[in-house]
């Protein structure tokens, strides 16, 4: 399948909708083990992104990702600003000025985004961060798409794996970010960054159907 500017706009809108609907939920998750602003920050960032997309003339997948990335950098505030900012900027750089992106290019962009996240936060799988969702999901996508399958075919599995990986952060002890200051007391709570990452991949999949 080919992913055009319309697809990426749908994706951003769906992601923004999930962040708005789950603003309180994400904030509660963050209040338990962090500074309690993840929901508010992400919702504000997504709204700023939509606003910028409305006023700029971003007509390619890369330009849309770049506009969103810059909006998140300027408006999110917490660590999620640079982290999600990097996600979108890295994807933008990977997409360059192509009009349409294929499955392989989409996954290559996501791989770059994952490298960006890991480079900034130095987190690995098991540290109770967004990497716990990103790494297994991107690896799964890469493996399947290299074997000739397309994202629409594996979407249900991608969403299920993202959800499972998000829930798997509950028993972990945080080793990165502010939650790590809590030590063992971080055990038993779902990681807010892993949760917003689940919405990210869910939105990426749901945008395919034009929902």
């Amino acid at each position: 399948m080919m992913y055009d500017a319309e697809y990426f706009l749908r994706f951003v809108k769906i992601f923004a909708k999930y962040l708005e609907e789950n603003r309180e939920y994400l904030t509660q998750l963050d209040a338990a083990i962090g500074d309690g602003d993840h929901g508010i920050n992400m919702d504000r960032g997504a709204k700023a992104a939509l606003e910028r997309l409305g006023t700029t003339n971003a007509g390619t997948p890369g330009a849309i990702m770049r506009t969103v990335g810059m909006a998140l950098l300027s408006s999110v505030g917490g660590a999620a600003g640079p982290l999600y900012g990097t996600v979108f900027m890295r994807m933008s750089m990977a997409f360059r000025n192509k009009e349409k992106i294929d499955d392989k290019e989409l996954v290559a962009g996501l791989e770059q985004a994952l490298l960006g996240i890991k480079g900034l936060g130095k987190a690995e799988v098991g540290d109770k961060t967004m990497v716990d969702v990103w790494e297994p999901v991107v690896e799964f996508m890469k493996e399947n798409i290299e074997n000739g399958r397309t994202l629409p075919e594996i979407c249900e599995d991608v969403i299920a794996l993202a959800e499972e990986s998000m829930k798997a952060t509950i028993p972990l002890q945080a080793r990165k970010g502010r939650a790590s200051y809590l030590g063992e007391r971080s055990i038993g709570h779902q990681d807010p960054g892993a949760t917003s990452s689940y919405y990210f991949f869910r939105s990426l999949c749901e945008a395919i159907g034009g929902r």
């Binding site: 500074d35 602003d37 810059m70 408006s75 505030g77 917490g78």
Partner: peptide, 15 residues
């Protein structure tokens, strides 16, 4: 701080 002057960081301004 953030653009609004709250706790946080404006990463675009840092850039």
């Amino acid at each position: 701080g953030t653009k609004e002057g709250d706790l946080g960081i404006d990463a675009e301004l840092v850039l």
